[in-house]
C-alpha cells in the first residue's frame, strides 16, 4: 500500500526532473536542488559473505541512511564522498573546458524506477529509495551501463524538496569504467 500517494507523485516528479537535468548537462541547476549541508556518498562495491546477524544488518541500514555515529567508521576509501563544496568543484571542473573525461560530453540516459517515498514526521524529513539505470555513451561505440540503488533524504525548504543525503550502491564489483558522471 502506498503510504502517501500525493507524496509519491511529488517525489517521482522530482526524481524524473533531476534525471532530466543531469542528462541535459544542467549541473548548476541540479545543484540548486541540493541542500547546503548535503552529504552525497558512494562506497565501493565488494562481494562479501552474507551475514544474517541482526547487528550487521542494522549497521548496514544505518550506513545507507547516514546514521553511523562513530566518526572512525566514516573513514573509508569512498568512490564519492561529497559535500556541497566538493560537488561544486566537480561541476566547475566541467566548466573549465579542459575536463577531457567529459569532452565531448557523455550522452547519458538515466532511468529511475522502484521509487518508494515516505515522511518521517519526527525528523521533518522525506525518505526515498529508488533504483537507477544509467546508460553512458562516451564517443562512437564506447558505451556502458551503470546500475545502482539509492537511499535519499529530503528536507522541505519553502515548499521545495532539497536533497540532504544520498547514498548510492552500485551493483558493480568491478566498475565498467571510471566514473565521470553523477548518480
Amino acid at each position: 500500500m502506498v503510504r502517501d500517494p500525493q507524496l509519491m507523485l511529488e517525489v517521482a516528479e522530482l526524481l524524473f526532473r533531476e534525471a532530466e537535468l543531469l542528462d541535459d548537462g544542467s549541473f548548476h541547476e541540479w545543484l540548486e536542488g541540493v541542500a547546503d549541508d548535503i552529504r552525497y556518498v558512494m562506497p565501493a562495491t565488494e562481494v562479501l559473505p552474507p551475514s544474517k546477524e541482526p547487528q550487521v544488518l542494522k549497521r548496514r541500514e544505518q550506513q545507507r541512511w547516514g546514521e553511523i555515529d562513530v566518526q572512525e567508521e566514516r573513514l573509508r576509501f569512498w568512490l564519492y564522498d561529497e559535500d556541497h563544496n566538493s560537488l561544486t568543484m566537480r561541476i566547475r571542473r566541467l566548466d573549465t573546458g579542459m575536463a577531457y573525461a567529459e569532452l565531448p560530453e557523455s550522452i547519458t540516459s538515466r532511468m529511475v524506477t522502484n521509487v518508494r517515498a515516505w515522511e518521517e514526521p519526527e525528523e521533518g524529513l522525506i525518505r526515498v529509495t529508488s533504483k537507477i539505470l544509467v546508460h553512458q555513451v562516451r564517443h562512437e561505440d564506447h558505451e556502458d551501463f551503470f546500475v545502482g540503488r539509492r537511499w535519499d533524504k529530503y528536507r522541505r525548504v519553502d515548499g521545495q524538496l532539497r536533497l540532504l543525503w544520498r547514498y548510492v550502491e552500485l551493483g558493480h564489483p568491478v566498475l565498467p569504467r571510471t566514473i565521470s558522471i553523477l548518480f
Binding site: L79, Y80, M89, R93, A99, Y100, A101, T178, I179, S180
Partner: peptide
C-alpha cells in the same frame, strides 16, 4: 585520494579518456 587518482576522482577519468 578519493577525489584525485581514484575511480571517481577528477584525475583517473581523464587518463581513462
Amino acid at each position: 585520494l578519493s577525489h584525485q587518482q581514484a575511480a571517481a576522482g577528477v584525475f583517473a577519468p581523464d587518463d581513462h579518456e
